[in-house]
Design a protein around this nucleic acid. Structure first.
Lengths: 348, 348
DNA sequence: CTAATGTGATTAAACGTTTAATCATATCGA
DNA sequence: TCGATATGATTAAACGTTTAATCACATTAG
């Protein structure tokens, strides 16, 4: 009824040894006899000893906590990336403190400094579109695109775009509409560039949803049925939610998927396999990305013994670009045979 | 080039006063002359003083960090709840450490104890289906359903179900199919019970997706076109992803939404307003839920001055059930006029 | 004029850990 | 047998903060 929680000195008193000996036994650092070490460890977990993070942090200058900064909730891969980062970090003995760079652009910097004030040892950040990450003495791993400055690791969005575009080209689609959301996004641009790189033989157009919505209001129709009439038979989107928007818009216009039009997405979100038809999409290798990012980050943390004032050098991983996997489902199929809306397309 | 980061004693030395005086000035606790206090505060933020969380935590026994335990990523409201908890917690001066109760059921308890070992002052948990939250000396706020034991606060899932069912009944639907995922979920049961409570006059059936998938494999068709043939004109789902699954399945079967069938969801996920037709759904008041939960939690933390071994009493909020808001969009409409598939339904 | 009160600051201990430095004892080589 | 070396454990300081206890001094009351 009394024992709040045993600490090292209580353990030491209970065993009749010194505090340092107990500490050594539990950390396996100093030299001491094997049987005493075992005896101490036994007593430790019999009494339910759990070390005080605060005491340890104060002494060692390391908190054992990493920060995770994510862009606003609009980004649908938030859950997966958070989950993977948390998984790998926990495995490496770190806790993960979350911070949110919402609404205002400046919130990203504020979030970073809040994490630093809380004493995190390092930070993983998925930068918001169009921002630059400040340089700090605290190591920061950046997950964005391979071409972003100081980027640590990311999916190979360009190659992913190339792969899905190749898939559509092989299916015989002669006119492909590329659907992006925001042209200021590094990730989306990389994906679109990748798609274009494999569509040199076919006709392509690109539309950006934010521009449409700026003119016609949020949630406006994308006018895809018109594009279909003009002979565009494949709609390649930069993200699954946009693909979903395209899919339902075409379906409710009475256009059959994939018989009359093909649709592809990006990110392999949870529901993408459950809808009708299931969505062809590209899957990031999040476990590997998280592992690479965190490996690089903890290495940077450990090599930063000296506590001077110089900003931390960029955190670089063993591999900067992780391939994406094309997941072919039923939303993409062969281009409709000639004859269907042939009159509109024959002038090409 | 030398200053790693100033601490209290450096500040004190720089100003020629004692450490305690500086501490008092910054915390506003002790008694000291106003002008000295101001001078100290000025110097503090000129030198960029930021207090060491570790030192403070060690001294006060409080880490200023809360834990957040979320069920597996399958739960699509993960991002919103995490975002709101983080927002409110940051406003109250707390950091948020995330933990994931994935895969194995036992992971939930493990996650909780890991957080406690990290020294969190309290925990917010959204329990996984079919688990019970262990009693600890660390205060735990539970967000599940109003009827869950030790529940702190949650959306009023039952009332939400009643509301959407009333909406469908008012539209004249005479046969409503209720679509759930997993009957072991408290939340889903509450929603379905609520829906039934307002459908006493109409014919209802309930299907559970996990049971269908156990027989026919993951991602199998739900056979909704058949239900439609049997005269069911409304499909009320316990969550937006299931509504999406239903919507696309019916659309690709050539059934027009909402002309020939109505569909409703739950949770108002991001994409629900962008699909065609936009989804009628119920929206949780997450900001209020998060606020209520955290208010109750920090109160429990502060009242827990004594550090004895007794488990923390349940954390209760000022209000246990927060109303949901019905968001009517175009996926629900009047029941199709009689005559359509009347022959199949007249034998009822 | 002395004692009581108040004001503004300081002293010192404590939180729990890690670790370099030290010490006592045993082992070994010569 | 004596000094050198291992071995196994202890001592003591330090990390940065908070806070109760104390102190020096001035002001006021009796």
């Amino acid at each position: 009824m009394k024992p709040s929680r045993p600490n090292l000195s209580e353990l030491a008193r209970h065993l009749g040894v010194s505090i340092a000996t107990v500490s050594n036994a539990l950390s396996g650092k100093g030299r001491l006899s094997p049987e005493l070490a075992r005896r101490i460890r036994d007593a430790a977990d019999k009494l339910g000893y759990v070390p005080s993070q605060a005491g340890r942090a104060l002494r060692t200058g390391r908190s054992g906590v990493l920060g995770l900064v994510l862009p606003d909730i609009g980004n649908p891969l938030y859950p997966e990336i958070a989950q993977e980062i948390e998984r790998v970090a926990t495995g490496a003995g770190y806790g993960v403190l979350i911070a949110n760079s919402r609404d205002e652009i400046a919130a990203q910097d504020k979030a970073i400094f809040q994490l630093i004030e809380r004493g995190v040892d390092g930070i993983v950040i998925v930068p918001r579109r169009g921002t630059t990450v400040p340089e700090t003495r605290c190591p920061i791993a950046i997950i964005d695109t391979p071409t972003t400055p100081r980027n640590t690791v990311s999916a190979d969005h360009f190659a992913g775009g190339a792969e899905v575009a190749g898939h559509l080209a092989a299916l015989g689609h002669g006119r492909v509409l590329l659907i992006g959301d925001d042209p200021s996004s590094n990730v989306q641009n990389a994906r679109i560039s990748g798609m274009r790189s494999k569509l040199s033989g076919v006709e392509t157009e690109t539309i950006w949803i934010v521009e449409l919505e700026a003119r016609h209001g949020k949630g406006c129709a994308l006018g895809l049925a018109d594009w279909r009439k003009r002979g565009f038979t494949a709609f390649a989107c930069v993200s699954d939610p946009h693909a979903l928007r395209a899919l339902t818009e075409l379906q409710s216009a009475g256009i059959a998927i994939p018989a009359e039009a093909s649709i592809t997405g990006f990110d392999n979100l949870q529901w993408s396999s459950f809808i009708s038809p299931p969505l062809t999409t590209l899957k990031m290798n999040m476990p590997e990305i998280a592992t690479l990012a965190l490996d690089a980050l903890v290495e940077a943390i450990q090599s930063r013994e000296t506590s001077d004032d110089t900003p931390s050098p960029p955190v670089t991983a063993r591999k900067a670009a992780v391939p994406m996997e094309l997941v072919i489902r039923r939303s993409s199929g062969p281009a409709p045979s000639a004859g269907f809306s042939q009159e509109e397309s024959k002038h090409a």
